[in-house]
């Protein structure tokens, strides 16, 4: 188990190194001068020169590399040009928003998706199965911004039971937080729910056709016991895989939904930076998203090893 962990950590470190190189290189891949690009045509050469110095672009390349790595190793992602504040701070400030939205929609989609997939698999080929699969496909096919807008129209505008948008931190008011997060979380969960339901069903169907399920059946155990103790544990690896993918896409920024519900999350921060060519934030955001994905992947790998003893040997 220890060797397994070490190998996974080493792999994650390598990927992170690669991403840091890429993210440093972004600024050099921009055609022309990044400072001039940010300031656009109207800026005086003097202003451009000042920004170049601020971004450290006037120093030799080797020097810039050394500075970049000594900064990011300390967790300092530089200063935003536009917001005139630290990139790290800006991300950390928006993290609780993204975490609560992503966390709640992840729990919703996993619980509902796995349950629906299990029902469909046990009723394979029956109307219930077809209904669940049709629902899942429908959920998968709905654009999330459209669903978000429909939810706003129905629950916020017509029924008036929930706010149309904005975010209330849980430290300020728990009920306000729940009310502000409900609609965006549902809009996000519906899509991922369908994805997880289909994956769960497929994985379970495969498992339920295996010999050891027949053995469990020959023991005279109840169908529910067989499903929960023999079926589901063996189907967990693909379920964990999709859960990891879903968690990554939720945490890495849910730009559209944040926009629709005017939620100040990490996704909006990064999109804003891209639109205004705020390079330090783009670079920092890239590193942050990579770190999120790697952490999730590592967690998923550890879960694999917990769930299936054979994985530990690999």
């Amino acid at each position: 188990m220890l060797g397994f962990l070490t190998r996974r950590l080493a792999g994650a470190f390598l990927v992170l190194l690669l991403v840091s190189v890429l993210s440093f290189g972004i600024i050099w891949l921009v055609p022309g001068d990044p400072a001039a690009v940010f300031l656009d045509a109207g800026a005086t050469p003097d202003q451009v020169e000042r920004l170049r110095r601020e971004l450290g672009l006037d120093k030799p390349l080797a020097m810039q590399v050394v500075e970049w790595y000594s900064r990011i190793l300390k967790g300092d992602l530089g200063r935003s040009i536009l917001l005139s504040r630290g990139v790290t701070e800006a991300i950390i400030e928006r993290l609780p928003v993204t975490l609560s939205l992503a966390g709640i929609s992840l729990v919703l989609s996993v619980v509902a998706g796995v349950a629906a997939g299990m029902v469909a698999a046990t009723k394979h080929g029956q109307p219930v199965d077809q209904a669940v699969m049709a629902g899942a496909l429908f959920g998968l096919s709905i654009p999330e911004f459209w669903l978000g807008l429909v939810l706003i129209v129905v629950f916020a505008v017509q029924l008036g039971v929930l706010p149309t948008g904005g975010f209330v931190p849980p430290t300020e008011s728990i009920t306000g937080w729940i009310r502000s997060i409900t609609l965006p979380a549902i809009a996000l969960a519906v899509v991922h729910m369908g994805f997880i339901a289909r994956m769960t069903r497929a994985a379970l169907l495969e498992v339920l056709s295996q010999d050891f399920i027949r053995t469990a059946d020959s023991k005279g155990l109840t169908r529910l016991h067989i499903l929960l103790r023999h079926g589901l544990p063996n189907a967990l690896i693909p379920i964990l895989t999709v859960t990891g993918i879903v968690a990554g896409s939720l945490l890495g920024g849910t730009v559209i939904i944040e926009q629709v519900f005017s939620i100040p999350g990490v996704g909006r921060l990064i999109i804003g930076a891209i639109l205004s060519r705020d390079f330090p934030v783009i670079q920092g955001g890239l590193l942050f998203v990579a770190l999120v994905y790697l952490t999730i992947n590592l967690l998923v790998d550890i879960c694999y090893a917990i769930v299936d003893p054979r994985v530990r040997l690999e």
Binding site: T215, K219, G220, R310
Partner: peptide, 24 residues
């Protein structure tokens, strides 16, 4: 019938690798 299995009658299968639950 399920209730009779295990208690009144039991079965041993051919392939002992696949007949046992690999994660239990």
């Amino acid at each position: 019938w399920r209730d009779r299995r295990g208690r009144d009658m039991a079965m041993i299968f051919q392939e002992p690798m696949t007949a046992l639950n690999p994660v239990m």
